[in-house]
Design a protein around this nucleic acid. Structure first.
Length: 146
DNA sequence: GTTCTTACA
DNA sequence: TGTAAGCA
C-alpha cells in the first residue's frame, strides 16, 4: 500500500546532514526539543529513517516560514508531519511565500522528498495565500532569522 | 574517521 | 547555533 513503505533506521547523522542541509547541531537540537526520536545503534549512534529526513525537511521549511519549534513540537506529539496543509498552516500568512519558495527552489535535499507531496504543498500554500488575501508584512515588525 | 555528550562564547 | 574538548 502507498505510504506503507519500510522505514528502517539507516542513515547516520552525517548522511542526514547532506540530505537536509542542516547541521548536526541543529538536528540534535530538534531532537532535544522533542521533534524527533531517532533510533540508536549499539554504539549509541543515531540512526535515522527516510521519514525522519522528511520530518527534518518539514521543520526546516516551517521554521523558514516563521513557525516556532514549540508549535512544531505540538504536532510532533501526534503524527508529525502529517499533511501539506498542516505544514503550510504552521507558517504565518505573511511568510507563506517564503515556505512556497523553499519547496519550489530547493534542489538537493528534496531528492528524498516525495514530489507529489511537494506539489500538493505548493498548491495548498497558493490556496491559503488567496484565501487569506494579500496580507502584507507590516513595516517595523520584528523579522525572524534562520 | 565519525559521532557522542557536555559546556561555553 | 557554532565550536571545542575528551571519549567511544
Amino acid at each position: 500500500m502507498a505510504g506503507m513503505e519500510k522505514e528502517r533506521p539507516i542513515y547516520p547523522i552525517g548522511m542526514v546532514q547532506e540530505l537536509t542541509g542542516l547541521t548536526g547541531r541543529q538536528i540534535r537540537y530538534y531532537e532535544q526539543r522533542g521533534l524527533l526520536k531517532p533510533a540508536r545503534s549499539g554504539g549509541g549512534r543515531r540512526l535515522y529513517t527516510p521519514r525522519d529526513v522528511r520530518i527534518l525537511l518539514e521543520i526546516k521549511a516551517a521554521l523558514a516560514g516563521g513557525a516556532s519549534l514549540d508549535a512544531l513540537r505540538t504536532r510532533a506529539g501526534r503524527q508529525f508531519p502529517a499533511s501539506a496543509t498542516e505544514t503550510a498552516s504552521l507558517a504565518q500568512p505573511r511568510d507563506l511565500e517564503v515556505v512556497r519558495n523553499y519547496f519550489q527552489e530547493t534542489r538537493g535535499p528534496t531528492s528524498v522528498y516525495p514530489i507529489d507531496h511537494r506539489e500538493q504543498l505548493i498548491e495548498t500554500i497558493d490556496e491559503l495565500r488567496l484565501k487569506g488575501g494579500a496580507r502584507r508584512v507590516r513595516r517595523g515588525e520584528k523579522e525572524r532569522g534562520p
